[in-house]
Nucleic acid binder design. Structure first.
Lengths: 248, 248
DNA sequence: TGCGGCAAGGGCACTCAGTTCCCTCCTCCC
DNA sequence: GGGAGGAGGGAACTGAGTGCCCTTGCCGCA
């Protein structure tokens, strides 16, 4: 496999259109080459800088830790998500908005499928990288929860609802993302995430403006006694719609 | 503050009823004394073992890493949770069951409020400990999700639903737990967690045996065209039931 | 042309977490 | 009594991460 194909797009460096990737990219490429060849823990930072032909001190200038070189683009993606949420229109449906924000993460993964799949295999095997990834996911989740808390603060249990929705959206997103990664990037990532997030949105969703006039078709009628628990009603609806949805 | 009060109950050591706490306890006590006095990062493992009067090598016999000494009882709690889920009756409501499993974690925290509050203040300040805690929480979540996956495997989107429910239950539990820790252990932890988990259960709950024959009342009928997004239907249901449910 | 920053990078030494190897001591059992 | 085995201790080592200072190359400026 080509090492350059494993390296993600350029970071925030100041690189002219056709310029060769700066040291940061070289370090990522060298690191992944060695990680895939000998394993993460068997590769020392000295090995990486030797292959990249730079000084050891420079590595830690670009990456605060050895783990960071495995996730070189999450910092940018997190900033994108924060900006996306900050730019939200005031009348946006909050749940839909955080689902869209989660899709930014998927987009980052999908931009470099090979790199993402390689990284996935790496993180699956190395406990330290899994722990690091958890802290990254946690920051995404806190970004979503922060936005939701602001939007739901006037509601009873607003903070609780915000935390729960953020966790559910992240879990749904990651479920689909991991499925896509396990398929070696061959499945349709967008559709899988749409389906998973649709699930979360169906549970928590709060419609912005109902897009009424859909195409005509059969009618499904649900009748329930007042007093019936909500979950039970929702379950009935899901059963009625079951043959519309793909079976997983 | 008394150091001994900060140490949690005995681990799995073989200690007679009245025996003095073994080395493991002494290490935890010494570590927390130093952590609270000088900070986590400012305290080296050598400092801890010097205060405890044991050899450095013994520290790593009892705790695989410096971080583990901060969470000395999670391993046991995780084992308890796994056993609890494995012992589940086949007809138990899965969502209720994982909520009860989550309460085991709360119980562990509530058994040593002082210790838990001290640890909470520590983890809030130290990024490394937060990351470690995330990996612990992740293991709890995977235990819940594993149980739910098995219980929901015959349902459409079973794995997705399992992951989302587990994440939501953990988030609800942690929301209440953190509120209790922020109150310095003065609030009613059990009530807060019951409330939070009740929320999750209301959203995802799945009846063991459908309590059909409720008291008769008005009927709500919802009609939707096939193809209407599920969230929209759910929203209609929620609107129709709004005056029945408590306004959260 | 020379000079004084200034930023990027490199080298070196240091701390500290975690591991490996081997030692001692105590206890129990034959 | 003597050997086995486990608990604990200690020295030395690896490797991540940091602090300090040096070189180099580039810029503006006198």
């Amino acid at each position: 496999m080509s090492t350059s194909s494993a390296a993600p797009r350029r970071g925030d460096g100041t690189d002219a259109p056709g310029a060769r990737p700066p040291m940061r990219e070289a370090l990522v490429a060298a690191a992944f080459q060695l990680f895939l060849e000998h394993g993460y823990e068997q590769t020392t930072v000295d090995d990486i800088v030797a292959l990249a032909g730079v000084g050891r001190r420079s590595f830690f200038r670009y990456f605060p830790s050895k783990e960071d070189v495995v996730f070189p683009d999450h910092e940018r993606c997190l900033a994108d998500m924060t900006a996306f949420l900050a730019d939200s229109p005031a009348d946006a449906d909050p749940v839909r908005r955080v689902c869209d924000a989660a899709r930014l993460v998927l987009r980052m993964y999908a931009e470099n499928p090979d790199f993402s799949v390689q990284r996935y295999r790496l993180t699956k095997r190395v406990a330290g990288l899994r722990a690091y990834e958890l802290s990254v996911v946690w920051r995404y989740e806190r970004a979503l929860a922060g936005y939701l808390r602001a939007r739901l603060e006037d509601r009873p249990d607003g903070r609780l609802r915000a935390d729960v929705i953020a966790a559910a959206v992240v879990a749904a997103h990651n479920n689909a993302l991991r499925g896509w990664l396990r398929s070696d990037g061959r499945d349709d990532a967008g559709a899988a995430v749409d389906h998973a997030l649709g699930h979360a949105q169906a549970v928590f969703g709060d419609a912005p403006a109902a897009p009424r006039g859909g195409p005509p078709g059969d009618l499904v009628v649900v009748a329930a006694r007042r007093g019936t628990p909500l979950w039970q009603v929702v379950r009935e609806i899901e059963t009625a719609f079951a043959d519309d949805a793909p079976p997983n």
